[in-house]
Amino acid sequence: MAVLAGPRVAALFRDVTPPSAETLTTGCQWKIIRKIAGVYEEPRKDAPRIKTKEKDNKVGPYCTKWTNPEDGKTYIPVTTDSAIDRIGWIDASTLTPA
């Protein structure tokens, strides 16, 4: 009998839904540390890029971090008029506290 293991199987047992707008904590500012950073409609690597931010731009106001169990990346939500719900997502590795 085969035993199922690995990150993909583990992802089946974790929540793959990002936090809702009502549960996001606010009060943080972040600074872009790479030349450019994409802002995405959803926190996943294959989501459409809706905006691009440049190095030293500041974004916020959310403090919540969410790790997508499917791609292993951690994302931070940011306010943007470009997103349907006014919340875009940036790869946390492109940010530092401002």
Rank of each mutant, 00 (worst) to 15 (best):
V39S: 05
K51M: 13
D85I: 05
A47I: 07
T79P: 00
D15K: 12
G88I: 00
K51R: 08
L24Y: 11
K65F: 07
L12T: 09
V78Q: 01
K58R: 12
N68W: 01
I32Y: 13
D15R: 12
L95M: 01
A5L: 10
N57M: 09
L4K: 13
T64H: 03
A10Q: 13
G38E: 15
A10D: 15
W66P: 03
Q29P: 00
R49V: 14
V9A: 13
Y75V: 06
I90P: 00
D91S: 05
K51Q: 15
T25E: 15
A83N: 03
A11E: 10
I90R: 02
T26N: 12
A47K: 03
T26V: 14
V9E: 15
T52C: 02
V59R: 03
D15T: 13
E54P: 00
P48Y: 01
K65A: 11
T23C: 06
A83I: 04
L95E: 04
D71R: 05
L4E: 13
I33Y: 06
K45H: 11
S93Y: 00
K45C: 03
L95H: 02
A83K: 06
P61T: 11
P61A: 08
E70C: 02
A92L: 01
A92C: 03
K51Y: 10
A10P: 00
Y40R: 15
I36D: 12
V39T: 04
I36H: 10
D56F: 08
P97D: 07
W66C: 03
S82V: 00
A37R: 04
D56G: 00
W30K: 09
V39L: 10
Y62P: 04
P77L: 06
N68D: 11
L12R: 13
D81T: 11
F13L: 15
D81Q: 05
E42G: 07
T96R: 11
T25R: 15
K58Q: 11
K31Q: 15
P18F: 10
T74Y: 01
A11P: 05
I90S: 05
G88Y: 00
E42A: 15
D56S: 08
V9P: 05
D71A: 08
A83E: 03
S82F: 02
N68Y: 02
K45Q: 14
W66D: 07
V9L: 15
A92K: 07
V59S: 05
A83G: 05
D46C: 01
R49Q: 13
M1H: 09
R14D: 08
T23P: 07
K73S: 05
P48L: 06
